[in-house]
Design a protein around this nucleic acid. Structure first.
Lengths: 251, 251
DNA sequence: GTCTACTCTCGACCTGGATCAAGTCATGGA
DNA sequence: TCCATGACTTGATCCAGGTCGAGAGTAGAC
Protein backbone atom coordinates (compact mmCIF):
# COMPACT_ATOMS: atom_id res chain seq x y z
CA UNK A 1 0.00 0.00 0.00
CA UNK A 2 1.45 3.37 -1.02
CA UNK A 3 1.60 6.28 1.35
CA UNK A 4 -0.89 8.22 -0.78
CA UNK A 5 -3.67 5.85 0.07
CA UNK A 6 -3.01 6.28 3.76
CA UNK A 7 -3.34 9.99 4.19
CA UNK A 8 -5.08 11.33 1.08
CA UNK A 9 -3.87 14.90 0.98
CA UNK A 10 -6.13 17.43 -0.61
CA UNK A 11 -4.38 20.70 -1.08
CA UNK A 12 -6.46 23.67 -0.10
CA UNK A 13 -5.95 27.14 1.22
CA UNK A 14 -5.56 27.28 4.99
CA UNK A 15 -5.60 30.39 7.06
CA UNK A 16 -2.88 30.27 9.67
CA UNK A 17 -3.79 33.80 10.63
CA UNK A 18 -7.25 32.76 11.72
CA UNK A 19 -6.12 29.56 13.38
CA UNK A 20 -6.55 29.51 17.12
CA UNK A 21 -3.21 27.78 17.42
CA UNK A 22 -1.14 30.47 15.76
CA UNK A 23 0.42 31.43 19.08
CA UNK A 24 1.64 27.88 19.64
CA UNK A 25 2.52 26.86 16.16
CA UNK A 26 5.07 28.14 13.70
CA UNK A 27 3.54 31.55 12.86
CA UNK A 28 4.12 32.69 16.44
CA UNK A 29 5.62 36.16 16.40
CA UNK A 30 5.52 36.59 12.64
CA UNK A 31 4.28 39.77 11.01
CA UNK A 32 1.15 39.49 8.81
CA UNK A 33 2.93 39.27 5.47
CA UNK A 34 5.30 36.59 6.77
CA UNK A 35 2.32 34.60 8.01
CA UNK A 36 0.96 34.76 4.49
CA UNK A 37 4.19 33.42 3.09
CA UNK A 38 3.93 30.55 5.53
CA UNK A 39 0.30 29.91 4.60
CA UNK A 40 1.39 29.53 1.00
CA UNK A 41 3.40 26.43 1.79
CA UNK A 42 1.15 24.84 4.42
CA UNK A 43 -1.11 22.08 3.15
CA UNK A 44 -4.27 20.95 4.76
CA UNK A 45 -5.21 17.29 4.89
CA UNK A 46 -8.79 16.18 5.37
CA UNK A 47 -9.57 14.94 8.88
CA UNK A 48 -8.02 11.64 9.83
CA UNK A 49 -9.78 9.08 11.97
CA UNK A 50 -8.89 6.83 14.86
CA UNK A 51 -6.39 4.23 13.74
CA UNK A 52 -5.23 6.06 10.59
CA UNK A 53 -1.49 6.33 10.09
CA UNK A 54 -0.04 9.75 9.36
CA UNK A 55 3.24 8.15 8.37
CA UNK A 56 5.02 4.86 8.76
CA UNK A 57 8.52 3.91 9.77
CA UNK A 58 10.60 3.84 6.61
CA UNK A 59 8.59 6.53 4.81
CA UNK A 60 10.75 9.19 3.24
CA UNK A 61 10.73 12.38 5.31
CA UNK A 62 9.24 15.31 3.41
CA UNK A 63 7.12 17.30 5.80
CA UNK A 64 6.57 18.27 9.36
CA UNK A 65 3.01 17.92 10.62
CA UNK A 66 1.20 20.20 13.03
CA UNK A 67 -1.77 18.89 14.99
CA UNK A 68 -4.68 21.28 14.62
CA UNK A 69 -7.31 19.31 16.51
CA UNK A 70 -7.38 15.82 17.98
CA UNK A 71 -4.39 13.78 19.09
CA UNK A 72 -1.89 11.20 17.89
CA UNK A 73 0.65 8.82 19.28
CA UNK A 74 3.99 7.99 17.79
CA UNK A 75 5.54 4.59 18.31
CA UNK A 76 8.41 2.42 17.17
CA UNK A 77 8.11 -1.27 16.48
CA UNK A 78 10.02 -3.17 19.13
CA UNK A 79 12.19 -6.08 18.01
CA UNK A 80 9.89 -8.65 19.64
CA UNK A 81 6.97 -7.55 17.53
CA UNK A 82 5.27 -5.30 20.04
CA UNK A 83 5.32 -1.55 19.82
CA UNK A 84 6.97 1.07 21.96
CA UNK A 85 5.01 4.30 22.42
CA UNK A 86 7.33 7.28 22.01
CA UNK A 87 4.94 10.11 22.67
CA UNK A 88 1.53 11.67 22.38
CA UNK A 89 0.86 14.73 20.27
CA UNK A 90 -1.71 17.36 21.12
CA UNK A 91 -3.01 20.36 19.16
CA UNK A 92 -0.36 22.95 18.41
CA UNK A 93 2.42 20.41 18.54
CA UNK A 94 4.75 19.53 15.69
CA UNK A 95 5.44 15.94 14.63
CA UNK A 96 8.38 14.60 12.68
CA UNK A 97 11.29 16.68 14.00
CA UNK A 98 13.35 13.57 14.67
CA UNK A 99 13.26 12.57 10.99
CA UNK A 100 15.06 15.65 9.62
CA UNK A 101 18.47 14.13 10.26
CA UNK A 102 17.83 10.64 8.92
CA UNK A 103 15.68 11.79 5.97
CA UNK A 104 13.41 8.89 6.79
CA UNK A 105 10.79 8.39 9.45
CA UNK A 106 11.87 5.86 12.02
CA UNK A 107 8.58 5.66 13.84
CA UNK A 108 4.88 5.44 13.11
CA UNK A 109 2.37 8.19 13.86
CA UNK A 110 -1.15 6.92 14.53
CA UNK A 111 -4.28 8.96 15.03
CA UNK A 112 -5.99 8.40 18.39
CA UNK A 113 -9.21 10.31 17.69
CA UNK A 114 -10.58 12.24 14.72
CA UNK A 115 -7.92 14.87 14.05
CA UNK A 116 -7.07 17.54 11.57
CA UNK A 117 -3.47 18.10 10.71
CA UNK A 118 -1.47 20.70 8.76
CA UNK A 119 1.34 19.48 6.56
CA UNK A 120 4.41 21.70 6.21
CA UNK A 121 6.87 20.62 3.49
CA UNK A 122 10.24 20.84 5.17
CA UNK A 123 12.37 21.98 2.25
CA UNK A 124 10.12 24.94 1.59
CA UNK A 125 9.96 25.71 5.29
CA UNK A 126 13.75 25.70 5.50
CA UNK A 127 13.92 28.11 2.56
CA UNK A 128 11.49 30.40 4.34
CA UNK A 129 13.43 30.30 7.60
CA UNK A 130 16.50 31.59 5.77
CA UNK A 131 14.68 34.79 4.82
CA UNK A 132 12.49 35.24 7.90
CA UNK A 133 14.80 35.45 10.91
CA UNK A 134 12.00 35.19 13.47
CA UNK A 135 10.78 32.00 11.81
CA UNK A 136 14.27 30.61 11.89
CA UNK A 137 14.50 31.42 15.54
CA UNK A 138 11.14 29.80 16.14
CA UNK A 139 12.38 26.63 14.44
CA UNK A 140 15.50 26.50 16.57
CA UNK A 141 13.42 26.99 19.68
CA UNK A 142 10.99 24.29 18.58
CA UNK A 143 13.77 21.78 18.03
CA UNK A 144 15.48 22.75 21.26
CA UNK A 145 12.22 22.48 23.19
CA UNK A 146 11.77 18.96 21.87
CA UNK A 147 15.23 18.05 23.15
CA UNK A 148 14.33 19.49 26.52
CA UNK A 149 11.11 17.52 26.66
CA UNK A 150 12.89 14.32 25.74
CA UNK A 151 15.42 15.00 28.48
CA UNK A 152 12.59 15.37 30.96
CA UNK A 153 11.23 12.02 29.82
CA UNK A 154 14.65 10.54 30.24
CA UNK A 155 14.74 11.66 33.86
CA UNK A 156 11.29 10.20 34.27
CA UNK A 157 12.59 6.79 33.32
CA UNK A 158 14.49 6.63 36.57
CA UNK A 159 11.57 7.42 38.83
CA UNK A 160 9.05 5.21 40.58
CA UNK A 161 5.74 4.22 39.06
CA UNK A 162 3.81 6.79 41.13
CA UNK A 163 6.22 9.55 40.20
CA UNK A 164 5.94 8.67 36.54
CA UNK A 165 2.18 8.70 36.44
CA UNK A 166 2.01 11.94 38.41
CA UNK A 167 4.51 13.54 36.04
CA UNK A 168 2.61 12.26 33.03
CA UNK A 169 -0.67 13.72 34.23
CA UNK A 170 0.94 17.06 35.04
CA UNK A 171 2.61 17.12 31.64
CA UNK A 172 -0.73 16.55 29.92
CA UNK A 173 -2.30 19.15 32.18
CA UNK A 174 0.27 21.80 31.25
CA UNK A 175 0.14 21.03 27.57
CA UNK A 176 -3.65 21.23 27.53
CA UNK A 177 -3.54 24.49 29.45
CA UNK A 178 -1.20 26.01 26.87
CA UNK A 179 -3.82 25.44 24.22
CA UNK A 180 -6.46 27.09 26.37
CA UNK A 181 -8.19 24.03 27.78
CA UNK A 182 -8.84 23.13 31.37
CA UNK A 183 -5.68 21.92 33.13
CA UNK A 184 -7.67 20.02 35.74
CA UNK A 185 -10.51 18.43 33.83
CA UNK A 186 -9.76 16.58 30.63
CA UNK A 187 -10.19 13.52 28.49
CA UNK A 188 -7.36 11.10 27.83
CA UNK A 189 -7.56 9.91 24.26
CA UNK A 190 -5.11 7.07 24.83
CA UNK A 191 -5.74 3.76 26.56
CA UNK A 192 -4.26 2.63 29.85
CA UNK A 193 -2.20 0.23 27.84
CA UNK A 194 -0.70 3.05 25.80
CA UNK A 195 -0.01 5.09 28.91
CA UNK A 196 1.70 2.12 30.52
CA UNK A 197 3.72 1.38 27.44
CA UNK A 198 4.78 5.03 27.20
CA UNK A 199 5.80 5.22 30.85
CA UNK A 200 7.40 1.80 30.94
CA UNK A 201 4.82 0.36 33.32
CA UNK A 202 2.44 -2.59 33.11
CA UNK A 203 -1.23 -1.77 32.48
CA UNK A 204 -2.08 -3.23 35.86
CA UNK A 205 0.32 -0.86 37.58
CA UNK A 206 -1.17 2.15 35.82
CA UNK A 207 -4.62 1.04 36.85
CA UNK A 208 -3.61 0.44 40.45
CA UNK A 209 -1.96 3.83 40.76
CA UNK A 210 -4.97 5.61 39.29
CA UNK A 211 -7.03 3.91 41.96
CA UNK A 212 -4.53 4.84 44.67
CA UNK A 213 -4.46 8.48 43.56
CA UNK A 214 -8.22 8.49 43.60
CA UNK A 215 -8.32 6.97 47.09
CA UNK A 216 -5.91 9.69 48.20
CA UNK A 217 -8.25 12.36 46.78
CA UNK A 218 -5.55 13.60 44.38
CA UNK A 219 -7.83 13.11 41.39
CA UNK A 220 -11.01 11.60 40.08
CA UNK A 221 -11.07 9.03 37.28
CA UNK A 222 -14.07 7.91 35.30
CA UNK A 223 -12.71 5.78 32.47
CA UNK A 224 -10.93 8.24 30.19
CA UNK A 225 -12.17 11.33 31.94
CA UNK A 226 -9.71 12.76 34.43
CA UNK A 227 -10.19 15.46 37.03
CA UNK A 228 -7.14 16.63 38.94
CA UNK A 229 -8.00 17.79 42.47
CA UNK A 230 -4.60 18.54 43.93
CA UNK A 231 -2.02 19.77 41.44
CA UNK A 232 0.43 20.71 44.18
CA UNK A 233 0.39 17.26 45.72
CA UNK A 234 0.88 15.71 42.29
CA UNK A 235 3.74 18.09 41.62
CA UNK A 236 5.38 17.12 44.90
CA UNK A 237 4.95 13.46 44.05
CA UNK A 238 6.30 13.93 40.53
CA UNK A 239 9.39 15.69 41.88
CA UNK A 240 10.22 12.53 43.75
CA UNK A 241 9.63 14.00 47.19
CA UNK A 242 6.74 11.64 47.75
CA UNK A 243 6.67 9.84 51.11
CA UNK A 244 9.88 8.71 52.77
CA UNK A 245 11.82 6.80 50.13
CA UNK A 246 14.58 9.39 49.69
CA UNK A 247 18.37 9.39 49.32
CA UNK A 248 18.84 9.82 45.58
CA UNK A 249 21.85 8.40 43.79
CA UNK A 250 24.91 10.49 44.35
CA UNK A 251 27.74 10.59 41.82
CA UNK B 1 32.08 32.94 42.12
CA UNK B 2 31.33 34.42 38.72
CA UNK B 3 31.24 32.35 35.58
CA UNK B 4 34.29 34.13 34.22
CA UNK B 5 36.49 32.58 36.89
CA UNK B 6 35.20 29.17 35.97
CA UNK B 7 36.04 28.95 32.33
CA UNK B 8 38.52 31.75 31.56
CA UNK B 9 38.01 32.24 27.88
CA UNK B 10 40.91 33.49 25.89
CA UNK B 11 39.88 34.43 22.43
CA UNK B 12 42.27 33.27 19.77
CA UNK B 13 42.21 32.29 16.16
CA UNK B 14 41.20 28.68 15.62
CA UNK B 15 41.46 26.81 12.38
CA UNK B 16 38.34 24.74 11.79
CA UNK B 17 39.73 23.83 8.42
CA UNK B 18 42.69 22.05 9.94
CA UNK B 19 40.69 20.45 12.74
CA UNK B 20 40.42 16.69 12.53
CA UNK B 21 36.82 16.94 13.62
CA UNK B 22 35.62 19.12 10.77
CA UNK B 23 33.70 16.23 9.27
CA UNK B 24 31.76 15.71 12.48
CA UNK B 25 31.34 19.25 13.62
CA UNK B 26 29.57 22.24 12.13
CA UNK B 27 31.85 22.95 9.13
CA UNK B 28 30.87 19.62 7.58
CA UNK B 29 30.10 20.13 3.91
CA UNK B 30 30.94 23.83 3.86
CA UNK B 31 33.01 25.40 1.11
CA UNK B 32 36.37 26.92 2.13
CA UNK B 33 35.20 30.52 2.35
CA UNK B 34 32.19 29.54 4.45
CA UNK B 35 34.46 27.66 6.81
CA UNK B 36 36.44 30.86 7.20
CA UNK B 37 33.30 32.78 8.10
CA UNK B 38 32.58 30.16 10.72
CA UNK B 39 36.12 30.34 12.06
CA UNK B 40 35.64 34.05 12.56
CA UNK B 41 32.99 33.49 15.19
CA UNK B 42 34.38 30.39 16.91
CA UNK B 43 36.26 31.06 20.13
CA UNK B 44 38.84 28.82 21.62
CA UNK B 45 39.01 28.31 25.37
CA UNK B 46 42.16 27.11 27.02
CA UNK B 47 42.07 23.47 28.09
CA UNK B 48 39.78 22.66 30.98
CA UNK B 49 40.64 20.10 33.62
CA UNK B 50 38.82 17.32 35.41
CA UNK B 51 36.12 18.75 37.62
CA UNK B 52 35.89 22.15 35.89
CA UNK B 53 32.42 23.35 35.01
CA UNK B 54 31.79 24.52 31.46
CA UNK B 55 28.50 26.05 32.55
CA UNK B 56 26.09 25.81 35.43
CA UNK B 57 22.36 25.43 35.66
CA UNK B 58 20.89 28.93 35.65
CA UNK B 59 23.66 30.45 33.52
CA UNK B 60 22.35 32.54 30.68
CA UNK B 61 22.61 30.70 27.37
CA UNK B 62 24.94 32.43 24.92
CA UNK B 63 26.94 29.80 23.14
CA UNK B 64 27.03 26.25 21.97
CA UNK B 65 30.17 24.30 22.81
CA UNK B 66 31.93 21.72 20.70
CA UNK B 67 34.19 19.17 22.34
CA UNK B 68 37.52 19.11 20.53
CA UNK B 69 39.36 16.65 22.77
CA UNK B 70 38.51 15.00 26.08
CA UNK B 71 35.04 14.38 27.45
CA UNK B 72 32.36 15.90 29.65
CA UNK B 73 29.20 14.89 31.41
CA UNK B 74 26.08 16.94 31.78
CA UNK B 75 23.85 16.54 34.80
CA UNK B 76 20.88 18.08 36.50
CA UNK B 77 20.61 18.53 40.24
CA UNK B 78 17.92 16.18 41.54
CA UNK B 79 15.51 17.55 44.12
CA UNK B 80 16.95 15.39 46.91
CA UNK B 81 20.36 16.98 46.52
CA UNK B 82 21.94 14.29 44.37
CA UNK B 83 22.64 14.71 40.72
CA UNK B 84 21.18 13.07 37.68
CA UNK B 85 23.60 12.39 34.81
CA UNK B 86 21.99 13.39 31.51
CA UNK B 87 24.71 12.45 29.10
CA UNK B 88 28.36 12.16 28.20
CA UNK B 89 29.95 14.26 25.50
CA UNK B 90 32.76 13.07 23.29
CA UNK B 91 34.94 14.89 20.76
CA UNK B 92 33.02 16.29 17.81
CA UNK B 93 29.80 16.57 19.80
CA UNK B 94 27.91 19.77 20.48
CA UNK B 95 26.75 20.74 23.98
CA UNK B 96 24.01 23.15 24.93
CA UNK B 97 21.37 22.52 22.28
CA UNK B 98 18.67 22.09 24.90
CA UNK B 99 19.21 25.62 26.21
CA UNK B 100 18.29 27.47 23.01
CA UNK B 101 14.61 27.41 23.83
CA UNK B 102 14.80 28.40 27.49
CA UNK B 103 17.59 30.97 27.01
CA UNK B 104 19.10 29.56 30.16
CA UNK B 105 21.07 26.44 30.91
CA UNK B 106 19.09 23.98 32.98
CA UNK B 107 21.90 21.56 33.58
CA UNK B 108 25.57 21.56 34.51
CA UNK B 109 28.37 20.50 32.20
CA UNK B 110 31.41 19.10 34.00
CA UNK B 111 34.75 18.14 32.50
CA UNK B 112 35.70 14.48 33.07
CA UNK B 113 39.29 14.66 31.83
CA UNK B 114 41.50 17.41 30.43
CA UNK B 115 39.56 18.70 27.44
CA UNK B 116 39.67 21.45 24.88
CA UNK B 117 36.45 23.00 23.77
CA UNK B 118 35.36 25.42 21.05
CA UNK B 119 32.79 28.04 21.95
CA UNK B 120 30.33 29.10 19.25
CA UNK B 121 28.24 32.19 20.12
CA UNK B 122 24.72 31.20 19.17
CA UNK B 123 23.39 34.54 17.93
CA UNK B 124 26.24 34.90 15.49
CA UNK B 125 25.90 31.30 14.43
CA UNK B 126 22.18 31.82 13.77
CA UNK B 127 23.01 34.86 11.61
CA UNK B 128 25.47 32.78 9.65
CA UNK B 129 23.00 29.96 9.12
CA UNK B 130 20.62 32.42 7.47
CA UNK B 131 23.15 33.18 4.75
CA UNK B 132 24.80 29.76 4.42
CA UNK B 133 22.08 27.25 3.51
CA UNK B 134 24.26 24.20 4.03
CA UNK B 135 25.14 25.42 7.52
CA UNK B 136 21.47 25.93 8.30
CA UNK B 137 20.77 22.44 7.12
CA UNK B 138 23.60 21.12 9.24
CA UNK B 139 22.11 22.86 12.28
CA UNK B 140 18.69 21.36 11.67
CA UNK B 141 20.24 17.94 11.28
CA UNK B 142 22.27 18.40 14.44
CA UNK B 143 19.22 19.34 16.48
CA UNK B 144 17.19 16.55 14.92
CA UNK B 145 19.93 14.02 15.59
CA UNK B 146 19.94 15.03 19.23
CA UNK B 147 16.20 14.39 19.40
CA UNK B 148 16.75 10.99 17.84
CA UNK B 149 19.47 10.12 20.34
CA UNK B 150 17.30 11.19 23.26
CA UNK B 151 14.51 9.02 21.91
CA UNK B 152 16.88 6.07 21.83
CA UNK B 153 17.78 6.76 25.45
CA UNK B 154 14.10 6.90 26.28
CA UNK B 155 13.59 3.44 24.84
CA UNK B 156 16.58 2.29 26.85
CA UNK B 157 14.85 3.30 30.07
CA UNK B 158 12.41 0.46 29.59
CA UNK B 159 14.98 -2.26 29.16
CA UNK B 160 16.66 -4.58 31.62
CA UNK B 161 19.94 -3.79 33.33
CA UNK B 162 21.93 -6.03 30.99
CA UNK B 163 20.30 -4.55 27.93
CA UNK B 164 21.05 -1.05 29.16
CA UNK B 165 24.70 -1.65 29.81
CA UNK B 166 25.13 -3.45 26.49
CA UNK B 167 23.43 -0.57 24.68
CA UNK B 168 25.55 1.96 26.54
CA UNK B 169 28.79 0.23 25.59
CA UNK B 170 27.72 -0.09 21.96
CA UNK B 171 26.73 3.57 21.89
CA UNK B 172 30.14 4.58 23.19
CA UNK B 173 31.76 2.21 20.73
CA UNK B 174 29.93 3.73 17.75
CA UNK B 175 30.56 7.29 18.84
CA UNK B 176 34.27 6.62 19.30
CA UNK B 177 34.44 4.92 15.93
CA UNK B 178 32.90 7.97 14.24
CA UNK B 179 35.82 10.04 15.46
CA UNK B 180 38.27 7.49 14.14
CA UNK B 181 39.13 5.65 17.34
CA UNK B 182 38.96 1.95 18.05
CA UNK B 183 35.39 0.77 18.53
CA UNK B 184 36.48 -2.26 20.52
CA UNK B 185 39.25 -1.00 22.74
CA UNK B 186 38.74 2.19 24.71
CA UNK B 187 38.94 4.05 27.96
CA UNK B 188 35.85 5.09 29.88
CA UNK B 189 36.45 8.49 31.39
CA UNK B 190 33.46 8.24 33.69
CA UNK B 191 33.15 6.27 36.92
CA UNK B 192 30.91 3.25 37.48
CA UNK B 193 28.83 5.51 39.64
CA UNK B 194 28.28 7.93 36.76
CA UNK B 195 27.45 5.12 34.37
CA UNK B 196 24.94 3.72 36.84
CA UNK B 197 23.39 7.09 37.46
CA UNK B 198 23.11 7.71 33.73
CA UNK B 199 21.53 4.32 33.06
CA UNK B 200 19.32 4.37 36.13
CA UNK B 201 21.14 1.48 37.79
CA UNK B 202 22.91 1.05 41.12
CA UNK B 203 26.73 1.02 41.01
CA UNK B 204 26.68 -2.51 42.31
CA UNK B 205 24.50 -3.63 39.42
CA UNK B 206 26.83 -2.02 36.89
CA UNK B 207 29.76 -3.71 38.54
CA UNK B 208 28.04 -7.10 38.62
CA UNK B 209 27.03 -6.91 34.99
CA UNK B 210 30.52 -5.95 33.90
CA UNK B 211 31.73 -9.04 35.70
CA UNK B 212 29.01 -11.18 34.12
CA UNK B 213 29.82 -9.91 30.62
CA UNK B 214 33.45 -10.66 31.28
CA UNK B 215 32.63 -14.18 32.49
CA UNK B 216 30.63 -14.68 29.31
CA UNK B 217 33.64 -13.57 27.23
CA UNK B 218 31.72 -10.66 25.73
CA UNK B 219 34.33 -8.18 26.85
CA UNK B 220 37.34 -7.56 29.00
CA UNK B 221 37.39 -4.97 31.77
CA UNK B 222 40.42 -3.62 33.57
CA UNK B 223 39.18 -0.72 35.67
CA UNK B 224 38.34 1.97 33.11
CA UNK B 225 39.85 0.18 30.18
CA UNK B 226 37.29 -1.73 28.11
CA UNK B 227 37.82 -4.22 25.34
CA UNK B 228 34.76 -5.48 23.49
CA UNK B 229 35.21 -9.03 22.21
CA UNK B 230 31.81 -9.80 20.75
CA UNK B 231 29.99 -6.80 19.28
CA UNK B 232 27.32 -9.00 17.69
CA UNK B 233 26.42 -10.66 20.95
CA UNK B 234 26.26 -7.28 22.68
CA UNK B 235 24.07 -5.97 19.87
CA UNK B 236 21.72 -8.92 20.26
CA UNK B 237 21.59 -8.35 24.00
CA UNK B 238 20.99 -4.63 23.60
CA UNK B 239 18.11 -5.26 21.20
CA UNK B 240 16.37 -7.11 23.96
CA UNK B 241 16.63 -10.52 22.32
CA UNK B 242 18.87 -11.74 25.10
CA UNK B 243 17.94 -15.15 26.57
CA UNK B 244 14.32 -16.19 26.87
CA UNK B 245 12.54 -13.32 28.62
CA UNK B 246 10.48 -12.15 25.64
CA UNK B 247 6.89 -11.07 24.97
CA UNK B 248 7.15 -7.29 24.79
CA UNK B 249 4.28 -5.03 25.81
CA UNK B 250 1.64 -4.87 23.12
CA UNK B 251 -0.66 -1.85 22.82
C1' DG C 1 57.21 5.14 52.35
C1' DT C 2 52.29 5.59 55.00
C1' DC C 3 47.69 7.54 55.36
C1' DT C 4 43.46 8.69 53.73
C1' DA C 5 39.90 8.58 50.72
C1' DC C 6 37.80 6.76 46.99
C1' DT C 7 36.40 3.35 43.58
C1' DC C 8 35.19 -1.07 42.63
C1' DT C 9 33.54 -5.76 43.74
C1' DC C 10 30.78 -9.23 45.96
C1' DG C 11 27.41 -11.54 49.15
C1' DA C 12 22.84 -11.41 51.67
C1' DC C 13 18.51 -9.71 51.91
C1' DC C 14 14.30 -6.98 50.69
C1' DT C 15 10.87 -4.67 47.79
C1' DG C 16 8.52 -2.41 43.82
C1' DG C 17 6.45 -3.54 40.15
C1' DA C 18 5.90 -7.31 36.50
C1' DT C 19 3.38 -11.30 35.64
C1' DC C 20 -0.38 -14.42 36.02
C1' DA C 21 -5.20 -15.25 36.75
C1' DA C 22 -9.92 -13.73 37.30
C1' DG C 23 -13.26 -11.06 37.14
C1' DT C 24 -16.30 -6.54 35.92
C1' DC C 25 -17.82 -3.08 32.74
C1' DA C 26 -18.68 -0.72 28.30
C1' DT C 27 -19.67 -0.78 23.55
C1' DG C 28 -21.22 -2.29 19.26
C1' DG C 29 -23.05 -5.67 16.02
C1' DA C 30 -26.63 -9.06 14.64
C1' DT D 1 -32.18 -8.05 23.10
C1' DC D 2 -28.18 -10.82 23.79
C1' DC D 3 -23.71 -11.91 22.90
C1' DA D 4 -18.85 -10.94 21.70
C1' DT D 5 -15.02 -8.25 22.27
C1' DG D 6 -12.02 -5.31 24.17
C1' DA D 7 -10.83 -2.02 28.13
C1' DC D 8 -10.23 -1.69 32.82
C1' DT D 9 -9.68 -3.29 37.68
C1' DT D 10 -8.18 -6.24 41.45
C1' DG D 11 -5.73 -9.90 43.95
C1' DA D 12 -1.83 -13.32 44.45
C1' DT D 13 2.72 -14.53 43.44
C1' DC D 14 7.47 -13.94 41.78
C1' DC D 15 11.89 -11.94 40.62
C1' DA D 16 15.26 -8.25 38.87
C1' DG D 17 17.56 -5.16 40.77
C1' DG D 18 18.01 -1.90 44.80
C1' DT D 19 19.90 -1.55 49.46
C1' DC D 20 23.01 -2.74 53.10
C1' DG D 21 27.35 -4.41 54.74
C1' DA D 22 31.99 -5.48 54.12
C1' DG D 23 36.29 -5.94 51.95
C1' DA D 24 39.96 -5.23 48.36
C1' DG D 25 42.41 -2.53 45.34
C1' DT D 26 44.28 2.25 43.80
C1' DA D 27 45.74 6.88 43.74
C1' DG D 28 46.99 11.24 45.41
C1' DA D 29 48.94 13.98 49.53
C1' DC D 30 52.60 14.57 52.36
Amino acid sequence: MSQATIISIETMRVACKSCSLSTLCLPMALCPEDVERLEDIVRHTRPLHRGDLLFRSGDRFRSLYVVKTGSLKSFAPSPEGGEQVLGFHLPGEVIGLDAIDRRTHVCYAKVLETSSICEVPFQRLAQLTAIIPSLQHQMYRLLSKEIGHDTDMLLLGKKSAEERLAAFLLDMSKRLQRRGLSPTDFHLSMSRHEIGNYLGLAVETVSRIFTRFQDDRLLGVERKHIELFDLDALETLAEGMGATRQQQQRT
